[in-house]
Nucleic acid binder design. Structure first.
Length: 602
RNA sequence: GCCGACAUAGCUCAGUUGGCUAGAGCAGCUGAUUUGUAAUCAGCAGGCCCGGGGUUCAAAUCCUCGUGUCGGCACCA
């Protein structure tokens, strides 16, 4: 093996550049190390561009970087390119690769470059973004492209790649600009890694909550109902109810009061809150008797009205209201995605009204709450504090105090966090919780936001020690984010194999023959008494078939009941994963289920 | 919203260059069988081929406008 690039002062430099500058460094070989793959994929992107150019001579190219999952190239052509054309492009790429063109490099001045590419409006707009007055050009065969590199010494080294997706993308990532065609691809140093990657994609697709939700009959969508409005089916309803009741208890323990605001409120209120002006595009409005109403996109206003229902003393604070709040948001059609992005969803929403001095302890409590939930579900998670943005409202001192409280809460609990400088909402700083699922994907779910704006707008107050009127701080927080999104994530996280305490059905009971049906029913009733749902598989099918079906429904536990079990008052348990069987007494079995259900407390 | 693809039975999918009564597997129903740990057998039923409109002697198939879904982009208090 020979080097494809070198590492000089921690920077990956390709061989032509190294020679040009007369520098040396640690050799990088063609393997699956991050540095090597980056070079390989970058060159593969160029090879793809070369193939596209030869197939579609009018094509103009924008940028072709490497990304987390491979590479892409943005380009423009008058021809229509569809998914079916990817194969054709791949073939062309291979035929170029076989010619083993060397990848050459030369440098020209910005002015020369502008002259050279004067008919290529995409290249010109790339150059606008470059500050340097020198432009390097990489060339392979007839094809050349301006690029910073680094690249492989020859395209002959590119063999194991695949074009994966074709899509549209706005020039410069701005929706005001024209749309280009983008093709995504992936490349590896060897065949096995490519194969493994493709297999990984298949596995990820198997976990897709839309697919599993359909198989397990958790939820569905219907064209005639409308896009983005999920329908919860019985199995999904049971799962969700379990989650709701666990969480309800957890809130009560922490002193939250269940409340409920109306689904629609007068538009004037949304003007007071600022939603009308700032969020109106995403809201649904209607008229009732000539009065305009807005369907709530958030629950805060309802909770504010609860707060306003009586006078509060500083002795009462903190006051915590929670609600499984159904909200409606007008998401754009293209954004809708299974349960992850819908137009109607239910938040596990709460608002804490407290004094400025209480912020820190409240944050600590919420963060602890978050931790309990996330570890219960085996999620790793990370937190980001977002601070004051340029466009912000409210008192500078309160901002400072609030931000400091968030940071202190993290530090005192020894919690790792990152800071997103200026990423806060206009009304206050926030902590976002990102969860990491079983296959390493990140999801934004929960959020904790400090708000001084709404208390101000609504003139909220409490009586202080000296009977003075003080404005409380409002903390918005959701831990799951929404039941829809969270259940979608859980589904993918567990690949549908939910743990006992939230599974739609805890036990599948399979009676061996018809004579054992009554006993199965009795057992099922006993399970209901301990809050476990079961399903009896007594259809006129072979035992094998019924066990197979039960396995496929992903119930956590299957018990088989026949003469022996009835005689000895036992159950024969079949473990879902290992397929092992063992027999325990009915009493032990019920206790086991009960423990498994109750062991979880947030 | 934008670019591209797709929409056939409850589900997963066939259906040729436009041409006979639109097929299969699973699920469902009926019957036989009563099963000891991953598919017993036979029969039956099931379709406005996403919805309008058009082209044609003839449309699931071609065109067009919607709706929905998928992959991205943009969006995401």
């Amino acid at each position: 093996m020979s080097a494809i690039a070198i590492k000089h002062n921690d920077e990956v430099v390709d061989l032509v550049t190294a020679e040009e500058l007369g520098i040396t460094g640690e050799e990088i070989e063609l393997d699956n190390s991050p540095e090597s793959l980056d070079v390989l994929r970058h060159s593969t992107a160029h090879l793809m561009a070369q193939a596209i150019k030869s197939l579609y001579p009018d094509a103009e190219f924008y940028v072709g970087p490497t990304v987390k999952e491979g590479f892409y190239y943005d380009f423009k052509t008058e021809s229509e390119i569809g998914e079916g054309d990817l194969k054709k492009i791949e073939k062309q790429m291979l035929s170029f690769a076989k010619k083993k063109y060397k990848i050459e490099k030369y440098t020209i001045s910005m002015d020369e470059a502008k002259e050279k590419f004067k008919d290529d409006h995409l290249k010109l707009s790339v150059m606008e973004r470059i500050k340097d007055d020198k432009i390097s050009i990489y060339k392979q065969g007839e094809f050349e492209d301006l690029c910073r590199g680094p690249h492989l010494p020859s395209i002959g080294l590119i063999r194991y790649f695949k074009l994966t997706k074709i899509a549209g993308a706005y020039l410069g990532g701005d929706s005001k600009n024209e749309m280009l065609t983008r093709i995504y691809g992936i490349a590896f140093a060897d065949k096995e890694s490519l194969k493994a990657h493709m297999e990984m994609l298949v596995q990820a697709a198997r976990r897709d909550h839309r697919k599993i939700g359909n198989e397990m009959k958790l939820f569905t969508f219907r064209e005639e109902v409308g896009a983005g409005f999920p329908i919860w089916l019985p199995a999904g309803g049971r799962l969700r109810a379990r989650l709701e009741s666990l969480l309800f208890k957890a809130h009560r323990k922490r002193g939250y009061q269940p409340v409920r605001g109306p689904e629609m409120l007068r538009a004037d209120l949304w003007k007071t809150s600022g939603h009308y002006q700032n969020y109106g595009e995403n809201m649904y409005f209607t008229q009732i008797d000539d009065i305009e109403f807005g369907v709530k996109p958030m629950n805060c206003v309802g909770h504010i009205k609860v707060y306003e229902d009586e006078l509060h003393s500083y002795r009462d604070l903190p006051i915590k209201y929670f609600e499984y709040g159904v909200v409606h948001r007008h998401e754009m059609t293209g954004a809708l995605h299974g349960l992850f992005r819908v137009r109607e969803f239910t938040q596990d929403d709460a608002h804490i009204f407290c004094t400025v001095d209480q912020i820190e302890e409240q944050i600590i409590e919420v963060v602890d709450f978050v931790d309990k939930i996330m570890t219960t579900f085996d999620f790793k998670y990370s937190m980001t504090i977002s601070t004051k943005p340029e466009k912000a409202v409210g008192d500078a001192e309160v901002w400072e105090k609030s931000e400091a409280a968030l940071v202190r809460a993290m530090e005192k609990n020894n919690l790792p966090y990152t800071i997103d400088e200026g990423g806060g909402a206009f009304y206050g700083p926030k902590i976002d919780i990102k969860i990491l699922d079983a296959i390493g994907r990140e999801w934004q779910c929960g959020t904790i936001q400090l708000d001084n704006n709404l208390p101000e707008r609504f003139g909220l107050e409490y009586n202080g020690e000296n009977n003075e009127k003080i404005q409380p701080v409002m903390i918005h927080r959701a831990i799951l984010g929404s039941f829809e999104r969270f259940i979608g994530i859980l589904t993918e996280h567990y690949a549908g194999e939910f743990p006992m305490f939230i599974a739609p059905t805890q036990v599948a009971i399979v009676p061996v023959a018809e004579t054992h049906k009554d006993y199965a029913k009795q057992l099922s009733d006993k399970l209901i008494d301990i809050n476990a749902d079961s399903e009896i598989y007594a259809k006129n099918d072979s035992l094998n078939k019924r066990i197979r079906v039960a396995e496929k429904t992903r119930v956590p536990m299957i018990v088989v009941i026949g003469d022996e079990e009835i005689e000895n008052k036992t159950v024969s348990i079949r473990d879902r994963r290992t397929r092992e069987q063992y027999t325990i007494s009915e009493e032990e079995f019920l206790k086991l289920i009960q423990t498994k259900i109750n062991e979880v407390n947030f």
